[in-house]
Design a protein around this nucleic acid. Structure first.
Lengths: 409, 409
DNA sequence: CCTTCTTTTTGATATTTTTAAAAAACAAGC
DNA sequence: GCTTGTTTTTTAAAAATATCAAAAAGAAGG
């Protein structure tokens, strides 16, 4: 058994005892990843194995440095069990969260801790080979700054906006220059396995695995930015749909207006309930003479952008707060529909607009009561992301880890 | 090993080799249920077991009469493999599909064949103890008519409209008279394990397991009747949501009208795109002088109901067809939203309105092109149910079978 | 009709895994 | 501080399972 048996994940042809061993070990590691420090007894029950077998597996994993003995647990009356958990420094995962004007890069260890993070690294995303090369350069320079952990990086997770098919590794909205899937192209350039993911889905996973989500197994995550994206965790699993295009809530036809959406259609949720709509409305109101902290005279009008509006909202700008509440109220219409369809346990508000906290959450909540079936919406909690703008990178890292520990059937 | 080891499903405490054996056998049976006749080689690969082990398990299952040897497969060049499959007559499942004015009851064998079916048995569903007792009586009298198959019924599936939590066995909209879950109450009355399910979900499962669905793993099933229900199969699993209330698409707020929905809100999808809306519009049009096969004079107006409209549509009544097309078009608005959210491989139209076939499907299809993102909707096929009004009963039967064969982890 | 080729099935052996019993580790009470 | 009770861990024997080689069962071609 190779020390890096984890990388065997892409080898499907193994069978018999070799497969079984890898499978069992992965299940153990996945259990640790989900439940934290555990005793042999817990593992036995969860994996349906005998105690001696678990002991043997743990010994192997400890030999291979993936697992550590974390000492005794509090006694429950008799002999206290030994606790085991993942060895933090045995493997690392790199996450790259690509935005339109910047990139977040982070490295996490095997225990999901952020080892190193660089946020808001300037970068311009465009659908060109140069932009792709620049991204690779950024990643490489980040890796250069790492110590011995560099050799232990098992995989790199990359979040992109738009249409991403995580299973095949294809990105269609950006960097689709070759016949090969982008994940392969990147793997060749960076020398490490690459997992591609849609940005909203990665954020959703971040919150699910290490964020505001606790025990909930059915969670909707809304990525509120200029547009509206959604990532879903259903029955404890990230949901992709047929080709990984799921979660396009921004273009749900819920309004009867005449605003032309970017997608070319009318009545989309995004036309009235997005950061884009917020910015437009804010500008219109200012033009019509509304007062705000943000603009003293018409000259400043062009400095208004979504980020600025969110910022002044935090310092209690009346106009910003009023308009954000409006957005929240209208968003409620869409989310109500989603709650009726999914009956989720939790809806998480994330993305840049979520930074406004209760300013958007409370109006949304009252809209939910108005639009969704009460019995269903009573089942559903509404929380604001607690990872904030780190949800994306963290999600990218953790998704790679998850991929490595995943075993089908 | 008891012959009826299948009933051990509710016993969670078994462990070790006993658990393993049951688990393995169930996996074998589940594989047969999903894939039909299979050779040892297929089973070996799918279950990650050795050939001698599979042989031994099959021998046991054949001893227990659950599996039969179905002779040789066509050779692929060498020795032809033996094919094995479920023994049809080894176990039976009873399904009860409860509607407001009638009940469908059916018995299926272990190979998913309908052994006996009674459709449209008159019955009045109301939320009273009498109605519940009457239902039990119907079921019992159906069972009395069965031969030796009666003793081999492993479980009874019951479909109810409204809010049903299949996991706990509680029904909230109907028959919630005791503290005990309704499934337990029924089990006590009927003497056999009962599985409760929401009607739309059961229909969805019926189509998924034995209907129009082929290889697709992400399927939305629409139950188009007076109201609109939805059942979803996501990643090959029936989706329930937190408490089993998922799929409430009828009350998605997508219109900007002033029609008050049954749920008390305005703008619901149901107000313009349901059987209820169809009937209302039909009546209004007739009142305003439109001509139709259905009504010669105003006297006949009260005989109009959804079923009648669907019937005359089939005999090419212009008004009916025109209005059904309208409904389809408006339904498209809602389904477009769902397609954007789920990126399903297939949307199945079921329920009584689906009997109108292309009359509803084609307008719906063109609306989909109008309202949903083309890239996403190109992924999605739209088909009409092929089980028709048997989807419900069959779904009920097959869901029970599925429950028995299900193994967690 | 026999030989050769391919693939499945069976059987014997080796390995893995479980079971059950013994040992070890700690808490609490005397 | 020792004994007893409880729970975990280790150990060795028993059971289950996989591997590998041999046999069997057809198909194809001469």
């Amino acid at each position: 058994m190779n020390k890096l048996f984890l990388t065997e994940q892409f080898n499907d042809s193994i069978s018999g005892v070799a497969y079984k061993s890898i499978h069992q070990k992965k299940r153990l590691l996945a259990y640790f990843a989900e439940h934290g420090p555990s005793a042999i007894g817990d593992l036995r029950r969860a994996l349906h194995l005998s105690v001696p077998k678990v002991t043997a597996l743990l010994n192997e994993l400890m030999e291979e440095q993936f697992v550590k003995d974390y000492g005794k647990d509090n006694s429950t009356g008799g002999r206290p069990p030994n606790l085991y958990d993942l060895a933090a420094e045995s493997a690392y995962f790199l996450g790259v969260d690509v935005h339109r004007t910047f990139v977040n890069i982070a490295l996490t260890d095997f225990q999901k801790n952020i080892v190193k993070i660089k946020e808001q690294v300037p970068y311009t995303l465009s659908n060109t080979q140069e932009s792709l090369d620049a991204l690779c350069l950024l990643i490489k320079s980040f890796m250069k700054e790492l110590g011995q952990s560099r050799e232990k990086i098992l995989g790199i997770g990359v979040n992109l906006t738009g249409r991403v098919n995580s299973a095949t590794g294809f990105s269609y909205s950006f960097f689709h220059f070759e016949e090969q899937p982008l994940s392969e192209v990147l793997k060749d350039k960076l020398g490490i396995q690459v997992v591609l993911e849609n940005d909203s889905r990665a954020m959703a996973y971040g919150e699910f695995a290490a964020g505001v989500v606790e025990q909930e197994r059915n969670v909707l995550f809304l990525n509120l930015d200029y547009g509206i994206g959604m990532g879903m965790v259903l029955d404890g699993q990230l949901y992709y749909g047929k080709s990984g295009y799921s979660g396009e809530v921004g273009h749900m036809p819920v309004f009867d207006n005449n605003i032309i959406c970017q997608c070319g259609k009318k009545g989309c949720l995004e036309t009235e309930a997005s950061g884009w709509a917020l910015e437009e409305r804010f500008k219109t109101r200012v033009r019509n003479g509304a007062t705000t902290q943000l603009v003293q005279n018409q000259e400043h009008l062009k400095t208004i952008d979504l980020e600025a509006i969110i910022q002044v909202a935090e310092s209690d700008d009346v106009l910003a707060i009023e308009l954000i509440a409006e957005i929240g109220e209208q968003l409620g219409r869409g989310i109500a529909a989603l709650i009726n369809v999914f009956n989720p346990e939790l809806v998480v508000l994330g993305g840049s607009l979520a930074a406004t906290g209760d300013y958007i959450r409370l109006p949304l909540l009252s809209a939910l009561n108005k639009y969704s079936l009460s019995l269903v919406s009573n089942d559903t909690a509404l929380k604001v992301s607690n990872l904030g703008n780190r949800a994306g990178v963290l999600g990218a890292c953790l998704l790679v880890q998850h991929r490595f520990l995943a075993t089908k059937a």
